[in-house]
Design a protein around this nucleic acid. Structure first.
Length: 830
RNA sequence: GCGGGAGUGGUGAAAUUGGUAGACACGCAGGAUUUAGGUUCCUGUGCCAUGCGCGCGUGCGGGUUCGAGUCCCGUCUCCCGCACCA
């Protein structure tokens, strides 16, 4: 970067500028927020807090660069901005790394946090350093326990025995959300199922509100995230229908989204791994039972291996039993088949082969009848093998005949409700949130197991339940929590009856920690409450959340859920935590995600060393729309560095005193400066950071020309005005460079607090514009005209342009469209 | 299959009420400065034709309009999420 010939008068040296300003900012703390007397309106800008698994990487660099633009922008607009940072410090990676290195997870975590903190300061993140938090601090996690207890009281935290996802490598249970295509989200191991008693949060109680709440976020959250959440919750609307079974007391209830096709049901299918299937098989006699048992074994063996297979050849076994269709009394043979899942709906379906592809596949294989009940133009499914799911007119359906799908849907439910054999119902893909983990490095669950009293909550005044020191504990994954072996810790008297009892040895999923941390920032060291209610009322909700799309489902869904819970507990008065969300893309290298194994890792520290902090930040902002991925191979950090040097040199050459009246300056340059100032807010608020940088570059180029133009020159006040505007806006992207320029321009630090200059509307109005003149829609000439030119005048001027005259020739002008002052279009006969 | 999004130069991308397509950069080419390289500065750069341009051009095909990257209909491709979810 540096000029080694020494012939240039000024040198831009990113490193020395960084060294120069960091201590000044530490002293000034320009981003401290929350002085009680601060009259500025509030703005809460939050970056997703990092996991301290090492030093910052390119992904952090992008996220924090973009979040910083937003935070710094609102400061420049005169807001009291709270922009805090913390560490999501509990969790498996820390524990695994600690085991590998033979360290205490605590030591390893805190060391990483310190390293990240140093890197963030160097990276000029505009965080309020008085408001940091670490989720592994007991002053933080005690409030996880507090939250757990409140939820326990409300029945929202409960234990149940069920088949859970199990990662054999990490030896711990996983939430549904942590299983990606049958594999552990973290270590990619094939997930297995294990029957265990675990703690759950009852997120399904909030399914409707979580889904409906997405409507309010439309426009302020990326469509992609809204759609992912919608999919994840997976609400479907339909009906529960009760079917009597021959020779059996209790009916079987099935869930269907197509009650309109009830008359088209020709058989029933149960999930093989249900008690009902087992019972029916037993009741049907030895032969059936044997066939069923064999099938069940086959299904169980297959699940783990064939999980991923894409073609699902239908299999199943007849249970030799019949159900009665409640609307027409028909006998429906009952099968057990693995295409019906035990954990969806009631684990049983009515099969309508004509109108459902899966049922049709099964019916064709087992030679079951196929009855069309929705008449459409499609070919007969029994012939074509293609089910007809679309609309049509109902036939063969008794009272539903002649109705369309939608009407029949409603009517069928009415009929069922009248007869008491069914009712409208909803179903969700969403499952309750499994929060217990059999690992050490997390928040202890504040429950004591007493032989006499059962599950006893730890009284609030005994919180926190401290995590015991790891010394002497075996942290190796082994399927049970290491805390169970901490005898001094685990054995306690029951808080209720005083008898010897044991603490729950599990720890909480770290997503519990991150589901409410945004609230803690308003009073990070409060020891009376998780957050100060008054401060929360003042600051919340978060106005702008910034983070990666990797958290589109997990973290954001959990945080929305916990927010609604806290709302219902009367602790806060809003239901959505994050008003606006910006999801930045990923930083790639040569088209794919960076990884050591792929050998395409770009180290942030190397980039910072090569071009400096500001150039890296600027590159992140300029690369393209923030939500798009950045391929580091496609961008030019050195190009950014060159631009910064150009801008910086501009400031060195300004030769008019600070405070000079810009009104005396060059008009053309002033016009461009003020158009720039006018457009910047709209551009930044629309997250079009790349455009903002382009506009900065444009203004730098123009100002350079003005400066070098002898008729304008370094003493022109308009040059100073332009450079000041550049400096202030540049401070959003390249704070070190801008700070240095600000000083050269004769001001005290910090430029971050300078404020965006007002733009002068008269300068926006006065300048001339280029009118485009078209003939038959093709551009044939241009005309410099005043902004307020009259239509007639513009038309006459346009008609005289040589290019236009030539294009028209002797043909007749049929029509002339004039939109002053921008365009004239002559329509001529062809 | 369901849901969401996107297709614009060699590359990243602009064009936010239908009105100059390709701003701003990267790359490349040429030139100035330099012993040389780098830096810095200047010029050029959508495609085709380049002796000429009422020539072509925003995935493709239609339509509306004086005028379409933008609106409408159809179609293809790609990316993301969910998926034997009844």
């Amino acid at each position: 970067m540096s000029n080694q010939t020494g012939t240039e008068p000024f040198e831009y040296d990113a490193k020395s500028i960084q060294r120069k300003w960091q201590p000044v900012w530490d002293e000034l703390a320009p981003f401290d927020s929350g002085r009680p007397d601060d009259p500025r309106p509030k703005k809460y800008v939050l970056d997703m807090f990092p996991y301290p698994s090492g030093d910052l990487h390119m992904g952090h660099a992008e996220a924090y660069a973009l979040g910083d633009v937003v935070a710094r922008y609102w400061v420049q607009r005169g807001y009291n901005v709270m922009h805090p940072i913390g560490w999501d410090a509990f969790g498996l990676p820390a524990e695994n790394a600690a085991i590998k290195r033979g360290l205490d997870p605590r030591e390893w975590t805190y060391a990483n946090i310190e390293q990240q903190r140093t890197s963030m300061r160097n990276y000029a993140c505009s965080f309020d350093w008085k408001r940091t938090l670490r989720t592994c601090d007991e002053e933080y996690y005690r409030w996880n326990q507090w939250l757990f207890l409140r939820m326990f009281e409300k029945g929202l935290a409960y234990r149940k025995d069920s088949w859970v996802n199990w990662c054999p490598k990490d030896e711990t249970v996983l939430a549904n959300e942590q299983v990606v295509q049958g594999r552990c989200e973290r270590c990619d191991t094939l997930v297995t199922k294990k029957k265990l008693t675990q703690w759950y949060f009852k997120i399904t109680d909030y399914a409707d509100r979580l889904l409906d709440g997405l409507e309010d976020l439309r426009g302020n959250w990326p469509d992609r995230v809204l759609s992912m959440q919608r999919n994840w919750i997976g609400r479907s609307v339909g009906a529960d229908v009760d079917f009597q079974i021959e020779g059996r007391e209790e009916p079987v209830t099935v869930y269907t989204t197509r009650p309109d096709t009830l008359y088209g049901a020709t058989f029933m299918v149960l999930a093989p791994d249900t008690e009902l299937a087992q019972e029916l098989a037993e009741d049907a006699g030895a032969e059936t039972l044997q066939a069923f048992t064999e099938y069940l074994e086959q299904v169980k063996a297959q699940t783990e291996i064939a999980r991923e297979s894409t073609d699902h050849e239908k299999t199943g076994v007849f249970l030799n039993q019949y159900a009665i269709n409640p609307v027409n009394g028909e006998r429906l043979p009952i099968y057990a088949a693995d295409y019906v899942l035990s954990d969806h709906g009631h684990g049983a379906i009515m099969a309508v082969p004509a109108h459902d592809q899966r049922d049709l596949d099964f019916a064709r294989k087992f030679h079951l009848p196929i009855r069309v009940v929705v008449d459409s133009d499609e070919p007969d499914p029994a012939e074509s093998g293609v089910a007809v799911p679309g609309d049509g007119v109902l036939i063969n359906s008794g009272p539903l005949d002649g109705l369309h799908k939608e009407e029949a849907f409603q009517k069928a439910i009415e009929v069922l409700e009248q007869r008491g054999t069914g009712r409208a119902a909803k179903n969700y893909r969403l499952r309750d949130w499994l929060i217990s983990r059999q690992r050490y490095w997390g928040t202890p669950i504040p429950i004591i197991h007493c032989e006499h009293c059962g599950l006893v909550p730890v009284p609030d005044d005994q919180l926190p339940v401290r995590l015991p020191a790891s010394a002497g504990l075996d942290l190796q994954p082994k399927g049970t929590s290491p805390l169970g072996a901490a005898e001094d810790w685990v054995n306690v008297p029951c808080p209720k009856c005083g008898a010897p009892a044991r603490r729950d040895p599990d720890t909480m999923d770290t997503f519990v920690d991150s589901s409410w941390y945004y609230l803690r920032f308003v009073s990070p060291h409060d020891d009376a409450a998780p957050f100060d209610p008054e401060l929360a009322a003042q600051w919340l909700p978060v106005d702008q959340y910034v983070g990666g799309v990797t958290h589109a489902i997990l973290h954001l869904l959990y945080a929305r859920f916990i927010t609604k819970v806290l709302h219902d507990l009367g602790k806060i008065d809003f239901e959505e935590p994050f008003t606006r969300l910006l999801n930045q893309g990923m930083v790639l290298m040569d088209g794919s995600a960076m990884s050591k194994s792929r050998g395409n890792l770009v180290r942030l520290s190397d980039e910072l060393e090569a071009v400096g902090v500001d150039a890296v930040r600027l590159t992140m902002a300029f690369a393209g729309p923030p939500e798009d991925d950045i391929d580091w191979a496609d961008v030019s950090p050195t190009g950014s560095a060159k631009f910064l040097a150009r801008a910086w040199r501009l400031a060195q050459e300004v030769f008019s005193p600070a405070g000079v009246d810009p009104a005396l300056g060059n008009r053309a340059l002033r016009v461009q400066t003020h158009r720039f100032l006018h457009d910047i807010p709209e551009i930044i608020e629309g997250f079009r950071f790349n455009v903002a940088v382009a506009r900065l570059m444009e203004l730098v180029n123009t100002t350079r020309k003005a400066l070098d133009d002898p008729s304008i020159g370094a003493t022109d006040p308009a040059v100073r005005e332009a450079v000041e505007a550049i400096t202030i806006v540049l401070s959003l992207f390249a704070p070190y460079t801008a700070e240095d320029m600000w000083q050269v321009l004769g001001y005290e630090p910090s430029v971050s607090l300078a404020g965006l200059p007002d733009c002068d509307p008269t300068l926006l109005m006065e300048h001339t514009v280029t009118a485009v003149v078209q003939v038959n829609g093709k551009v044939r000439g241009r005309l410099e005209v005043p902004r307020n030119i009259a239509e007639d005048e513009l038309r006459e001027g346009a008609a005289k342009l040589p290019g236009v005259v030539q294009a028209i020739g002797d043909r007749q002008i049929v029509k002339c469209i004039v939109r002053a002052p921008k365009i004239v279009n002559f329509v001529i006969a062809r």
